[in-house]
Amino acid sequence: MIATPQDVERALKASIVGQDAAIEGLLLAAIADGHALLEGPPGIAKTLACRALAASLDATFKRIQFTPDLLPADIVGTRIFDQQRARFDTVLGPIVANIVLADEINRAPAKVQSALLEAMQERQVTIGPESHALPDPFIVLATMNPLDNDGTYALPLAQMDRFLLKIDIGYPSVEEELEIIERYAFAQTPLPQTVATLDDVRRWRAEARAIHVDRKLHRYIVELVAATRQASPYVLGGASPRASLALVNCARARALLHGRDYVEPDDIRSVAPAVLRHRIAFTHRLVLEGISPSSWIERTILGVPVP
């Protein structure tokens, strides 16, 4: 039986209580061949969601805890001298995996972040004279904690732009938290069974690329992105054309996830906040006036007429 993205979605929802939006975001990143940034307070199943995605796809999974003393070689790999054979051997770092969880990416200094982001862009790492291709699929899921910012290194906007999506993960509802207690208070959270393979993921990507997007929807996407660039006392810089491309790809991925071979305006509207929220530079006035970036983006999106 051919596995579908919906099979993976069901498997993830069976092991993670609530967080449906985060699960959908992770699947969109996998289908659209992109990387995702997960932001939320500690203890809300960010790491579990990434592990569960890897388990359901039978993908290799590595977790890197980013710390202030981390070095680029610690993630990319290094050359170690073999005394017996009198030569340098290359030891690849934990970045060589299908799904890499970069936990608390903003805790590492800029040069480590750059090494990771370069690998994300180039899909290869270079150690000494040798270049090594990263496996396909290669998905980086980076987490950030929005509350505990002491001793962190903020990611520059240009580097944030490399992430296809920024998924905001919030606290579960009361009912969901009750269910978490009942299910997992005395038991280890189980990882889902493998329901798809990496070949399936590559097939979904090809299918998503073939999904029809009407010209009116192309225009809608451009108008949404252009709306973030309009002069506003709250915005220093709007989203780039890369955001428009990301919107098309994510909307296609969502259409596939919903079993359609064409994109609807709802696909675009649904993915737009996650695609745009980390690509806009806001002024301090937004914070001073108590407006959250997400609500500004929501309002801006709602102001654009739907085709």
Binding site: H212, D214, K216, L217, R260, D261, Y262, V263, E264, P265
Partner: peptide, 11 residues
């Protein structure tokens, strides 16, 4: 109607 407005020409 949503489907008919945005689907492929073949469909």
């Amino acid at each position: 109607l949503e489907r008919a407005a945005f689907t492929t020409d073949e469909d």
